[in-house]
Nucleic acid binder design. Structure first.
Lengths: 147, 147
DNA sequence: AAAGTTAGTCAGAGGCTCTGACTAAAGACA
DNA sequence: TGTCTTTAGTCAGAGCCTCTGACTAACTTT
């Protein structure tokens, strides 16, 4: 599906995304956080400071709540997240980052920062800022979850 | 894994990528090409004009050759690709786009173009060009397959 | 000619995601 | 209040995807 000018933007977006994911994974695995999968991480990544309901995580990750539940079960068993009752709704529970998860987060953030720094060294400050701006703008258009 | 300035670049790249993929899928499904999966498409997408060996497709898609073989089997059964002997190596076969696949390609390209046009309308010509330039530069750094 | 490498397949296991059906709690409303 | 509808989440089952390990056949190197 080429465009008139090189690869299509979809694939062009995917390639660095994949590179980032691989790097963050490798960094976490090297630090002993090797007992989770990419699919679990994609859910984990969406958990906000106050916790989220399963349905929210499912919608944001664009998977069914059954799939999200399956992944959260595993994250919970591995100690990355915990489920606590939602005080405002007895049907729901909030999924929160648990102790082991909280230890992984700064390592992941550091790995992200490292990759971003590499990219900035390559592109320069201005173009990196521009990239972030453009992607943020695109997000507002393509992601119903943009704040 | 937030950065100091909004979402991390990984997620920011992923969101529009996903949007593009979803749109292309929907367009193909609407035209009757609904008998293939995202995983199959990610392999199909890498097939070049002269065909490719299974191992090449596997490496580019970053999956094992067993997985690639599994997906190509299905694409072949559905008529999207065909395997022909590689004249230069009797062990290998070239995977080429077959008749049904060839009919899908222009539809996919049109869907990509439509989404890119939407994005251009949003961002403007200059910023779209800039985005493509930056991503192409990033690709050279993150993708061993960059030509 | 022998040894090592490469292309691809077979077999088996486990992980991911889906659809459909279900329970329980919440919200709407007469 | 009591009923109806919606929403949060789970259970069950099926199919798809991906991996590791082991293997065959053909090519390359020595």
């Amino acid at each position: 599906m080429p465009s008139d000018n090189g690869l299509n933007l979809g694939l062009l977006l995917f390639i660095p995304y994949r590179a980032m994911e691989t790097r963050v994974f490798a960094a976490l695995a090297a630090a002993g956080f090797d007992d989770f999968t990419p699919a679990q991480a994609r859910v984990f990544q969406r958990i906000g400071p106050g916790g989220n309901r399963l349905t929210e995580l499912a919608e944001q990750a664009q998977i069914t709540k059954q799939s999200a539940g399956f992944l959260v079960d595993q994250l919970e068993r591995a100690g990355y997240v915990e489920r606590v009752p939602d005080p405002t709704d007895a049907r729901a529970r909030l999924i929160r980052i648990a102790e082991r998860g909280a230890r992984a987060v700064p390592l992941a953030a550091a790995a992200v920062a490292e990759v971003e720094a590499e990219w900035t060294a390559l592109l320069g400050d201005d173009r990196t800022d521009t990239l972030r701006d453009i992607l943020t703008e695109l997000r507002a258009h393509t992601d119903p979850w943009a704040e």
